[in-house]
């Protein structure tokens, strides 16, 4: 396993970012901008599922509008996150926060696009108890991903 991480760090992209003064900070800043949009696209729908925020609007409508921005922000996060990882893969290997993030991320993505998407799209009126649970689980999962992601830099 560690050999794979060593290989990641030795890739030309990983080397170029690690050797550059500006590349890592700029990728990080764009990763943060992606986080802003991801947060907004998630919250608009999750708050509504929880029965707050844009009440009076059908959750299905909000989810339909938010979806392209959700997908776009996930793409931005991956396109900036992967190079950031490549530049310090060995450090990441020994970093607990990194593994917490990488274990939670697939769960959050699957839950968002398989479960939450379906529940939100069907909810034309009040989403009820199921909606509340789905909204809360979604926020909890993504909060864990974001918090663990931030903590990679501290440990």
């Amino acid at each position: 396993m560690i050999d794979f991480f060593r290989w990641c760090e030795s890739t030309p992209i990983g080397r170029a970012i690690a050797d550059s003064i500006w590349a890592f900070p700029i990728l990080e800043a764009v990763h943060l901008l992606g986080l802003c949009m991801l947060g907004g696209a998630l919250l608009v729908v999750d708050l509504r599922l929880l029965g707050v925020g844009l009440t009076g609007q059908p959750p299905a409508r909000l989810a339909r509008y938010a979806r392209p921005w959700l997908v776009a922000s996930v793409i931005v996060m991956v396109l900036t996150g992967v190079p950031l990882f490549l530049s310090e893969a060995i450090k990441a290997y020994y970093n607990t926060a990194f593994w917490v993030k990488m274990c939670t991320l697939p769960v959050a993505l699957t839950f968002t696009f398989a479960v939450r998407e379906r529940v939100a799209r069907r909810a034309t009126e009040d989403p009820g108890v199921v909606g509340r649970i789905v909204g809360a689980v979604s926020l909890a999962l993504w909060f864990t991903v974001a918090a663990a992601g931030r903590w990679i830099g501290f440990s």
Binding site: L35, G39, G40, L43, A147, F154
Partner: peptide, 24 residues
């Protein structure tokens, strides 16, 4: 300090996130 800093960063998702949705 790390907790305060993390709260500052994560709240971006709430503050700038909802702002961006309204801007759109």
């Amino acid at each position: 300090w790390p907790l305060v800093e993390s709260t500052h960063v994560l709240t971006l998702g709430l503050f700038v996130g909802t702002t961006v949705m309204m801007d759109l």
